[in-house]
Write a protein that binds this DNA or RNA. Structure first.
Lengths: 200, 200
DNA sequence: TACATTTCACCCACTTTGGGGGAAGCGTAA
DNA sequence: TTACGCTTCCCCCAAAGTGGGTGAAATGTA
């Protein structure tokens, strides 16, 4: 466990220690000490806070996965901020809980991740699923979206024209209209804006 | 509810009907009939099977979201296939359950999605979270990965060179090495392969 | 009828791309 | 020490791609 708040850390440790089949092999207040002992502690599951002194939790997750890939990490934090959630998951977190949960949820979550699951708080799960879904009120037409998706795959105008069975000039017209609608002037800008607004 | 198996459909309908606060406004064996009655039924939550005669479940989800965006959909299926799961979520599913669950899970899931959650079976949640994570044994170096990520953002060699504070020629060398390692000969192929193998 | 969408055409100038070659400095591991 | 991989930079070439401009016809829909 890595958690800088003494009260919470000891509380969790006490809870887990008295649970059958659970053993707390380490409880640290910062990532540096935790990583130093990672090879010795050999944890199955790590509970990781994100707001930590010096090295942040996301970097702690990354380093853990590099040093000991089989380690499972569950983020336990107060942050429900989009960016942080996805950074933590990309870094290798296998679960994400917010601190407003009943303590029993922690026990369940650890069992769940050991059984091949991905324990998440309600809101986090929704954010994760929503990240797959497109914006339903796009300024782009169906055809333009189709073109932009292929642009985002790195395809050239010629390739796209062949795939859609139209002339290269048609694709160029679509691109011009896309740029005008998105108020951009290049592929990179268009892709960035489209991804940000979930148009593709 | 859209479910082509009579036994399952009637079983679920019976279960839900006798649960307090729940009302079954429609139980269909195919998407066509379901969509025809969608405006009339005005469901809060739809349980959607994926293997259906004629129109598939994924298209059913898409059409539902276009006709009535506020509708919440939970996929209930036997398929745990990667492709289908992500297609369903991209199409607009807000939850995904596999049929090997206890019936009580269905009730919980409907309550969960109404409270802003995203109910998922254990394995599905893991697949979804895993989709954010990179391949830890990439053939590419850190620098090459950095370059390829920017290529996938549609940036030109010149732009990438400026961002990384190196010469355009350096980027060209990296690209050549990336192409050689991935055994590809163009941007589009490199992006496709890198995304497929989760190198970026 | 008016409008949006989709399709195609031609002009220009500039950049990008993929492929070939070579090389120097750096650190690490055999 | 040697060898290797990584990162950096340089040169050549030809083909293709890109962004911007203007115009227009066919379709369907409100």
């Amino acid at each position: 466990m890595v958690e800088d708040d003494y009260i919470i850390r000891e509380g969790f440790a006490a809870l887990l220690s008295q649970t059958p089949d659970f053993e707390v092999v380490g409880a640290y207040s910062n990532c540096e000490d935790y990583l130093k002992n990672l090879a010795n502690d050999r944890p199955d599951v790590v509970l990781m806070d994100l707001e930590l002194p010096r090295m942040g939790g996301v970097e702690g997750i990354e380093r853990t996965k590099k040093l000991r890939p089989q380690t499972q990490l569950i983020v336990v934090t107060v942050y429900e901020n989009d960016g942080l959630v996805f950074k933590a998951l990309c870094a290798g977190a296998g679960g994400y809980l917010t601190k407003n949960m009943p303590p029993s949820r922690l026990i369940d979550a650890i069992r769940e991740i050991r059984q091949g699951g991905a324990p998440m708080s309600t809101n986090i799960a929704r954010m994760v699923v929503a990240s797959f879904q497109k914006n339903y009120q796009s300024p782009l037409t169906a055809r333009e979206t189709e073109v932009l998706e292929r642009i985002a795959q790195g395809k050239s105008y010629t390739t796209i024209a062949d795939e859609l069975f139209v002339d290269k000039e048609t694709i160029r017209t679509h691109i011009k209209n896309i740029y005008w609608k998105l108020e951009v002037h290049s592929k990179a800008e268009a892709i960035e804006k489209a991804r940000k607004e979930k148009l593709i």
